[in-house]
Design a protein around this nucleic acid. Structure first.
Length: 286
DNA sequence: GGTGCCGGGCG
DNA sequence: CGCCCGGCACC
């Protein structure tokens, strides 16, 4: 459904602190500096998408403003966001909390020691000001939504947030940066979008999607039951052959005795209805 | 061949 | 939706 994307965006983190922004931005720089292959542009885009995704968690109201209210999607160039420092909107309170072992899944494992140091360095000069670390940009904004929009519009070239497939940002001409917004650095990069993603990023992204999807239990019963069965038997679900990893997967025989074995065919009237109807046994589930 | 049950048909 | 069954995979 089309609302999945936004739901997924709003779900998990309202606890991303400004420090987390700095971490993300610094990691962006990290990859920009270290990958100079032709795929670096793709990496930049995906990284920026991740940054945007995380930024959108920063303030719950910003998500609502964009996805719910629709101001952004309708008039992206209406100057809703402050493009310079003159707005006077209060900078986000730098409530720097210790980055504990909160379940931050993919993002956390991206941040390793070196980047962590870099992040701390960034954070020291990070007093409520958001600096775009896009290569050769360095735009400074005072609000998270501003920087978010900045990256989205200038560097990604897309502004809609309701796309169900977050991995496919689309270039929307209506949201191209205006001539007076800022002298467009990185415009040449925003013109080429690609579908392929570097494996590391893609793992994070797909894992996130997978985990979110896991909350919505798969409709196909044989998958979930099959996974339970596999876990009970200490087998790796990954070892399931790809030809039967979807709804066609048929779980193996469970160890539990079913109505047929317990009562026998001659006392079929004592079976559970599911067994009588040759469905999955409800009385003795695996 | 027995068993469990998915997929689908029927009323 | 209740009921039934063909057919398949597992044992």
């Amino acid at each position: 459904s089309s609302s999945d994307g936004t739901d997924r965006t709003e779900v998990s983190t309202d606890r991303v602190s400004p420090r987390r922004y700095a971490l993300l931005f610094s990691s962006s720089r990290f990859f920009v500096l270290h990958f100079r292959s032709p795929e670096s542009v793709e990496m930049d885009e995906i990284m920026a998408a991740m940054v945007l995704t995380s930024l959108s968690f920063g303030s719950a109201s910003s998500v609502d403003m964009e996805c719910g209210g629709g101001e952004l999607s309708d008039s992206g160039s209406s100057g809703y966001w402050s493009w310079d420092h003159g707005n006077g909107s209060p900078a986000p309170s730098p409530s720097v909390t210790e980055m504990d072992s909160s379940p931050d899944e993919g993002l956390h494992m991206e941040l390793e020691q070196g980047e962590e140091l870099n992040a701390k360095k960034t954070k020291s000069s990070f007093r409520g000001v958001y600096k775009c670390l896009w290569p050769s940009c360095g735009k400074v904004l005072t609000s998270s939504v501003g920087i978010k929009r900045h990256i989205r519009v200038l560097h990604l070239g897309w502004a809609s947030c309701g796309s169900p497939s977050a991995s496919e940002p689309q270039i929307s001409p209506a949201y191209r940066p205006r001539s007076n917004s800022s002298s467009g650095p990185g415009q040449s990069q925003s013109s080429t979008l690609s579908q392929s993603a570097p494996s590391s990023f893609w793992q994070i992204h797909s894992e996130h999607l997978y985990q979110v999807g896991g909350m919505i239990k798969p409709r196909c019963r044989s998958v979930s039951v099959g996974e339970q069965w596999l876990q009970q038997n200490r087998l790796q679900p990954i070892s399931v052959s790809p030809s039967r990893n979807h709804c066609s997967f048929r779980k193996g025989r469970g160890e539990a005795k079913k109505c047929r074995k317990v009562y026998g065919v001659e006392r079929k009237d004592q079976w559970c209805t599911a067994c009588r109807w040759k469905k999955a046994c409800q009385r003795f589930p695996d």
